[in-house]
Computed example of a mutant assay.
Amino acid sequence: MSRPQHKRQSPRREASVEGVPIRSLPKVSLHDHLDGGLRASTVFELASAQGISLPAANSRELGEWFAERSNAGSLVEYLKTFDLTVSVMQSAENLTRVAREYVEDLANDGVIYGEVRWAPEQHLEGGLSLEDAVQAVQDGIEEGEDAADANGHSIRVGQILSAMRQGSRSPEIARLALDFRDDGVVGFDLAGPEDGFPASEHQEALDLLAQEFFPVTIHAGEAAGLDSINSALLDGRALRLGHGVRIAEDLEEIAAEGDEVRVRLRDLATWVRDREIALELSPSSNLQTGAIAQWGTKIEDHPFDLLYQLGFCVTVNTDNRLMSRTTLTRELALLVDTFEYGLEDLETLQLNAAGSAFLPLEQREELIELIQEGFERG
């Protein structure tokens, strides 16, 4: 395969590909955290109303603070910024508002299907039960969907409930997800600090979900390497990998001449590629957290294109829109500018995401048709 000639430019405000605005194209978002997708203005307003100390004098400065603090090159440091967003998400009213705005923002970005992940166990300090918290988020999602429909944009969003891998409540969260499987919850996730907290420590929850044939995605291959991915697949029976970028460690370069490079896939990488286990890649976030540090510190160093060319089921995601000051449109524009992708490439990436969504087959097929029709219209 040939190595692309990288461009070093930022996407324009109205990013486009082959003359088509990327924002207008139908998109699918699989990896986007609720507590990382708040509007800076909402965080500022809610925190001020609750008397929570803020590190900025206004919402604009607060947005800059999140971006600066998140660009630390470490997942552990990156996660510290969530203390503030989670602190304003401790009531049903606030959870509903945040979820509603989350859906509205996705719809404004051209997303037609999204999966929002969040950890209910982190939102109980105001007296909510786990069930109350999930219902509050579901209420907000449905309000956002209705508002988008009224504005002529159809969008549907499902919840992925995350258990914190450094905690002990994963069996409880797994049962919670199963209780709401017909009421908005489409999947389960393990989130939080990855290194040192393998999926195997949550075997009870993961076995229960497997017995109930409930979809699982696990953060793996971000702050930890191949052992973490291996555990997610074997212990967690994960259908997707949260980030999974470090699967590139299982590639062996066997020849390189000029712009041509040949690589060999070892067993784990072969399994992930051949089984079409989706990689929930998040280019900007992967730079911020240091997930691609062994390959470099710039977007052109990201192994995204290598994995794409090798046939992995790569998808594009935002991870945390507030911390990365990004949108799905911006992430796609970064890839267009860096790897010279065209409309056909962006369509493939969206079809990968649609085919990997935690939806019944018939609904995935409908989603695929909507994407194909949208890209045909341009």
Rank of each mutant, 00 (worst) to 15 (best):
G342H: 08
V245G: 08
L234K: 15
R60W: 03
D227E: 15
V76E: 15
T289F: 03
A199V: 02
I368Y: 10
L359V: 04
G19W: 03
V272F: 09
L310R: 07
Y308R: 15
L178R: 02
N108Q: 10
V316E: 03
I141V: 15
A67E: 12
Q50A: 15
F312S: 01
D337S: 13
N230D: 13
F358A: 11
E365M: 10
G110M: 06
R8Q: 09
S53L: 10
H31V: 05
L75R: 02
R264D: 05
F213T: 12
Q50L: 15
L75E: 04
S324V: 02
D83K: 12
G167Y: 09
D235L: 04
E253Y: 07
L38Y: 07
G242K: 03
E77D: 15
L367T: 03
G73Q: 09
W295F: 13
L307C: 01
A248V: 12
E104N: 02
E194D: 06
V157I: 13
A174C: 09
P26E: 10
N151A: 12
A57S: 15
L370P: 00
L265G: 01
L332P: 05
L208I: 10
G126D: 05
T270K: 13
E68R: 11
I52C: 11
G37I: 06
R23E: 11
E331I: 10
L370D: 12
T326A: 07
S170G: 09
N58S: 11
F197N: 15
A357Q: 02
E68L: 13
A238T: 05
Q288M: 14
L62N: 05
L128H: 07
G258S: 05
R100D: 04
A210T: 12
